[in-house]
Amino acid sequence: MSDPSLAPPETGRSAWISALIGIGLMAALDEIVFHQLLAWHHFYDQASLEIGLLSDGLLHSAELIALVAGFFLLFDLRRRHTLAPLWAWAGGFLGAGAFQLFDGVINHKLLRLHQIRYGVYLLPYDLAWNGAALLLIMIGVGLLTRARFVQAQRNLSAAETRLGESL
């Protein structure tokens, strides 16, 4: 085999694996900050639907797997020198934002699993929650655009080098 450091970066894989970590971290943050520290979220809300109990359990288990699997897969990419850091950051922000939005819209509103806080006027809380989600997604999209641009530049310069060599 040739020098492993010359292996092309696995851009898509870097982004997807980090998205897993982003999802897992956001879920962990929700559990630690809103359930445990602030105690705004309830362990269970009387308004929950039965299907919510089921989906909550499945999602919860998947989040734990996403977090642990994500870190190990990322370590594996790094070991093989094929990690694309910018793509990884983009994926991380997109995963975190998408999860936050999913939690804010599906879990809080559609399934009514639990609300952000109880005994308060919810609208500002919901807006802040989903606004934060959109902000994370926007950062992710920005990083992804930047990553694509850098990648295109790199491909271009590589093509120019090849052209120069062949001439």
């Binding site: 269970y44 109990l53 359990g57 499945l58 288990s61 734990l64 797997i65």
Partner: peptide, 17 residues
């Protein structure tokens, strides 16, 4: 393991409810 984690969490919440 995924299914076990989910089933365990669901049972714990059902016990709570």
């Amino acid at each position: 393991l995924f299914l076990a984690g989910a089933a365990h969490a669901i049972l714990a919440k059902a016990m709570y409810i």
